[in-house]
């Protein structure tokens, strides 16, 4: 803990996201650097967070498995003031506008958008990878011609975002965002570099496992999904309250891609496969007797 490193620049104020990066090791409490917590309230330790995640998972083991994280998940501290207290009102209107959705086409995506390594004048640093898979509904039908958007940190674990003050190098040849449309079989594919793990300020010594953010559209607005893809075998999984917010183990495993040697390109890139399954609103199951 005595290693010298540069102090992050001053932060913009109380609106600083918890995800802003960790303070220098000597800054314990007393400033906005602990994520906006009151000065007398030190950041929780990793052990505190581990205990809370473990308790949530143990409790979930006795209930029906949840496919999605609860919006109120105390180990992820930013959720505290950003989840509704009332339950959502269920709507079962088979003609709801939410059962249709926006469409995208050739005007919305350029051919370069799916290769995150070719957006600048030279190649980014890092381990070149391809990530591919299919976007499906729960019956395994492909979601065709729909928009897939991704964003990620660079190989050093830093985002090209001015609020990210993690003292790791920016890469002038990597912005870290891309998009594509799924094909007739629901396939998407991106070429990128493997993102690095990075520290954040949810608690003391908090580190996010390497991940790629994904944004997905289905045929219905009610199928919309924003999520994160993780890499297999990451030792940070048990320490992360965001992955851990998915309390069902099988559901959590669906967030982890497979390394697929068949997808690796000789002397060029390593391949990962990750299929994505979108929710089906109840009304779409009955449509045209498809169910």
């Amino acid at each position: 803990m005595t290693a010298q490193r540069p102090s992050p620049p001053a932060e913009p104020g109380s609106a600083a996201p918890y995800e802003q990066r960790v303070p220098p090791p000597d800054a314990r409490g007393g400033t906005a650097r602990n994520g906006g917590a009151p000065p007398h309230f030190p950041a929780p330790s990793q052990a505190d967070i581990d205990e809370a995640i473990g308790a949530a998972h143990a409790q979930a083991a006795h209930a029906a498995p949840l496919d999605h994280p609860p919006r109120d998940f105390p180990p992820y501290r930013s959720s505290a003031l950003r989840h509704p207290l009332a339950s959502p009102l269920p709507l079962r209107d088979p003609e709801a506008v939410e059962l249709t959705g926006p469409v995208f086409g050739v005007t919305d995506v350029t051919a370069l958008d799916s290769d995150l390594t070719r957006r600048h004048h030279a190649e980014p640093l890092g381990e070149r990878i391809t990530v591919t898979g299919r976007v499906l509904d729960r019956r395994g039908h492909p979601v065709r011609g729909q928009l897939v958007e991704v964003w990620q940190a660079n190989a050093s674990g830093r985002y090209a975002h001015q609020l990210d003050q993690h003292p790791a190098p920016l890469d002038p040849h990597f912005t870290g965002s891309g998009r594509c449309l799924t094909d007739d079989e629901g396939r998407y594919a991106f070429t990128t570099i493997k993102p690095g793990a990075y520290p954040w300020r949810n608690h003391t010594n908090a580190w996010r496992p390497a991940h790629i953010h994904f944004s997905l559209f289905g045929d219905a607005f009610a199928q919309r999904l924003v999520t994160q893809m993780y890499f297999p075998g990451d030792p940070l999984f048990p320490y992360d309250p965001i992955l851990g917010s998915v309390t069902d183990r099988a559901a959590r495993e669906r967030l982890v891609a497979d390394y697929d040697h068949e997808l690796s390109v000789p002397e060029w890139s390593l391949g990962y496969r990750w299929d994505i399954v979108l929710d089906d609103p109840a009304a779409t199951w009955c449509e045209e007797g498809r169910a």
């Binding site: 999605h68 992955l243 399954v277």
Partner: peptide, 8 residues
């Protein structure tokens, strides 16, 4: 199929 969970 089990749906892919949401993340922030």
């Amino acid at each position: 199929l089990g749906p892919t969970p949401s993340q922030t």
